[in-house]
Amino acid sequence: MYEFNYHRPKTLDEASRTTKEAEDGQVLAGGMTMIPSMKLRLASPSDLVDLADIDGLKGITIGPDTVTIGAMTRHHDVHTSPDVQKAIPALAALAGGIGDPSVRHRGTIGGSVANSDPAADYPAAVLGLDATVETNTRKIAADDFFTGLFETALESGEIITAVHFKIPDAAAYMKFPQPASGFAMVGAFVAKFGGEFRLAVTGAKDCVFRMTEMEQALAANFSADAVAEITIAEDDLLADIHCGADYRAHLVTVMAKRAVALAAG
């Protein structure tokens, strides 16, 4: 790993300024992607700005229509929160399927969402639950947040402070995990809000996306049969050593079916 300067600011303003003013500043949350990336020299920030000492970034708040999760809240805390388990059980279950127990003791929701890994789990929940990503400067709708492979709408020095999830009538997440890493080869998150549906897919393209054709079909018929015949073109799907584009396309329909079946209970 290359050398870097380490900062541990007490305030968001200082963290934002330090990140922005550094030659190549990066924010450090749980470090579960950042540190391995630095070890592999895929990332070599000049300065690392650790958010650990900033107050107010951790915790879960349940409102009448929303669940708000602070950016530095760990996967373990979301997974085991009785409040999240009650309000959005699919979200608690999703958090419990990330990495392994020791990774969940460090990894944070803010870090996962900011990273926009194409195979990460949280982005599917953010998009599927029509969440709002709050930063130190603004609020960003999930539909505008994920812009590409490891790319988001975040600007330099902009730091996620919380994610606000809408509480659905029903929701479920199903993924086909890559057996060694547990990352989603394909994952589908479905949520029902009254008569409207959202279905977000992770793992298949450069970043998480919605299957609007499936959403419309579910509005007419909330059952796995409604999405069973809806397929996605292979053309712009990811292909790698684990899984070709044709298999990923197949998995999109299968995971969507399983998620809908679970949500429809």
């Binding site: 380490y6 470090g31 579960m32 540190i35 391995p36 650990a52 373990h76 020791s102 990774v103 003791h105």
Partner: peptide, 20 residues
Amino acid sequence: NIHLNGESIKSCTIFAIQCQ
């Protein structure tokens, strides 16, 4: 794996300075 403040974590994926 070690315990940090009583919880298991992977000590290869955290900087010593984070454990101040």
